[in-house]
Design a protein around this nucleic acid. Sequence first.
DNA 1: GGTTTTTCTGCACACGTTTGCAGAAATTCA
DNA 2: TGAATTTCTGCAAACGTGTGCAGAAAAACC
Lengths: 333, 333
Amino acid sequence: MRVSIKDVAKVAGVSHSTVSRALAGNPLVSERTRRRIERHAQKLGYTPNALARGLVTQRTCALGVIVTSIADPFVAEVVRGIDQVAGDNGYRVVLGISRNDPAREVNAVKELRESRVDAVIVASSRVGSLYGPHLQEIGVPIVLINSQHPGTFLHSVAVDDMLGAKLATQHLIAQGHRVIGHLRGPAGYRATKNRLAGYRKALREAALPFDPGLIQAGDGRVEGGAQAITFWEQTPAPTAIFCYNDMTAIGALHALKQRGIRVPQDVSLVGFDDIAFAAYCDPPLTTIRQPMFEMGKRATQMALTLMRDPAIPVPDVIIPGELITRASSIAPR
Amino acid sequence: MRVSIKDVAKVAGVSHSTVSRALAGNPLVSERTRRRIERHAQKLGYTPNALARGLVTQRTCALGVIVTSIADPFVAEVVRGIDQVAGDNGYRVVLGISRNDPAREVNAVKELRESRVDAVIVASSRVGSLYGPHLQEIGVPIVLINSQHPGTFLHSVAVDDMLGAKLATQHLIAQGHRVIGHLRGPAGYRATKNRLAGYRKALREAALPFDPGLIQAGDGRVEGGAQAITFWEQTPAPTAIFCYNDMTAIGALHALKQRGIRVPQDVSLVGFDDIAFAAYCDPPLTTIRQPMFEMGKRATQMALTLMRDPAIPVPDVIIPGELITRASSIAPR
DNA sequence: GGTTTTTCTGCACACGTTTGCAGAAATTCA
DNA sequence: TGAATTTCTGCAAACGTGTGCAGAAAAACC
């Protein structure tokens, strides 16, 4: 038995329109009756119905968020940033988890469309790059985080992968390494491509040769680190490895230890992201810091601006990564 | 310019009711016209409006989820389980992050109430224990994860903290330890209290004395691990420590290393939760495994059952934790 | 062909809000 | 006291959908 605006109207002895106006703080209704109505609403335990409101106002105050996996610490931190800004501005967060599963991906988009969210933030690179046109049809502002956008109707906040990868590789070069491997990310991702490109660029600028044999494929997760092992069955073996991300690096670190290979004495390691656990690894992980929380916030602010006026030109944001030097890449002397 | 059911009706030359029925697969409408309507709907790019539907059906197919912090790997894993079952059953997930901030907590509850979610899952122990009556007013089924419930109208899925803590402590005793410390969790939490109780129980049953000086306060996060240091300024110093959770244990591990104290040679360490990173610590962390993903799933299934029939008696679920033995508590010989 | 049955479709109301517009009540002014 | 103004309130339509009920169209039967 839900209490509606009409029930409040009845006990307060006014029409339901007056109640609506009173609770909205509309100056058309007198101070005295407003107080009275508020008292009655309180007593009845009235809660406005967001569905009905959204239906007539054509705004839901809801923000759709599509992510690959919430268990990924990178993603979780981004969502935290999104929620912060969204919450501060009176927006709800509707979460869609895609799991890199095509069926889930289209379903997530469909659900957000049906619930008429006011904007969508996508932190799932696959969805971003595969469903561009599909997303456009939603007809609300869309902000992508760390994924390429095929059209001009999408907006994005992204870290400069190429620069970050270059910084990481240059750091290893500066430490005296000449044979540097790269554990790359999952195929088909923009980030995988660009981080590889940054790695190559650093090599080129340092006049070091590029050896495709030194590139191994990971999956962006800890398990992918196991791949690192194959590095040692070839010559020359790398003395340093730049990993696609921290998860990969942590996996690699683990596998190396099991083989009795010491980090950083035998091989140096650099990750990407700076997730919370990077600092607590043993040895602590050198990495390229992405301001994940900040990126979530920026994306949401962008979405808010676009919702106010979709026509306003909002430039894409590219954030440089920052090298965080820790023990995994500094050989003790 | 949104396309509604009426627009489809117009081009298909039928009434909007027929369209509604056709798209719902209602057998009242003939196969032939259904196909025709579906074709037109498709062509116009029609997407049903969940708001309008929810308004009339009094069901939103949305599930409210309140969590403390999404950046906590424990919580993230629970949410993953929730989303899995919710998604499989056609439910959306609306996320509310409370951050242990009273203002946010009441706001999260208010938002979910306004959006008329069909059920609420609370994975934020503070909200669970503080806002019992407040939650009840929402008038939908509520399932708490790992938090005590003050009334009978709430349901819960929880791990057996006391048993888990006992298992952990007994394991340390079995390893020959006689002076065992405990790094407890944040004050006021049910889990903190029960894990401490389990620890004491194990000591009692082994006829070991309980020394309050061996209890130190953490905050449930990595930073709290720094507290462990104070242990060594007293005698007798513990040779093993049971930590409130893995995050705390990781912090402790880090602090110990910085002081040159070796794990497990000098001191053994046991955590609680078995978050993904526990296995990748150095040394890998012995811990009590909570099936977080599974717990999220169970809670959601429970919510689904309650939504079908709130009167049906659904017993609370208590899951035993499982001891996962790793290197952090096994002294090498 | 008329009657009964079956199959399908449309009307109209409901869900809980917001909001333009008209008009009632209260106030001010002459 | 009556007219003009100001302040407030209610009516009614709209948002997009679902659904009971009546009735039209088609099919089946005699």
